[in-house]
């Protein structure tokens, strides 16, 4: 079973790499943010899979922190306003 879990985690890692395309291409910051969100959710799945495969329950806590940070990141991003932007 753990072989299967590790293989699935690898597939998801590849999927995360492909998702980076959207982060790089954009075109808007919102698109990049979505790419980052996808990385976050897929990362949570990878951590949970590896946590079971290697019998490391602490990875579930790491996944939990990922989930919390993703929520905070999106709300912080959407609170960004034009007039508060520093000069590019």
């Amino acid at each position: 079973m753990s072989d299967f879990l590790i293989a699935t985690a690898l597939v998801l890692l590849l999927s995360m790499t492909a998702g980076l395309i959207r982060v790089v291409v954009g075109p808007t910051p919102a698109d990049r943010m979505m790419g980052a969100q996808l990385l976050g959710t897929t990362g949570i799945a990878v951590l949970l899979l590896l946590g079971v495969a290697f019998e490391l329950p602490a990875l579930a806590d790491v996944a939990l922190i990922f989930a919390l940070l993703a929520a905070v990141a999106v709300s912080a991003f959407t609170r960004r306003r034009l007039d508060r932007e520093p000069d590019a």
């Binding site: 910051p29 949970l48 989930a67 709300s75 991003f77 959407t78």
Partner: peptide, 30 residues
Amino acid sequence: LVLIWLLVLLAGATGSHLIAKRALRGDGED
């Protein structure tokens, strides 16, 4: 794990609403 899923669900749905709203109202820099 179920709690993590619920949290991601909530954050994902709310986050996408916020991103869509921000894009619609054009109050970001996009």
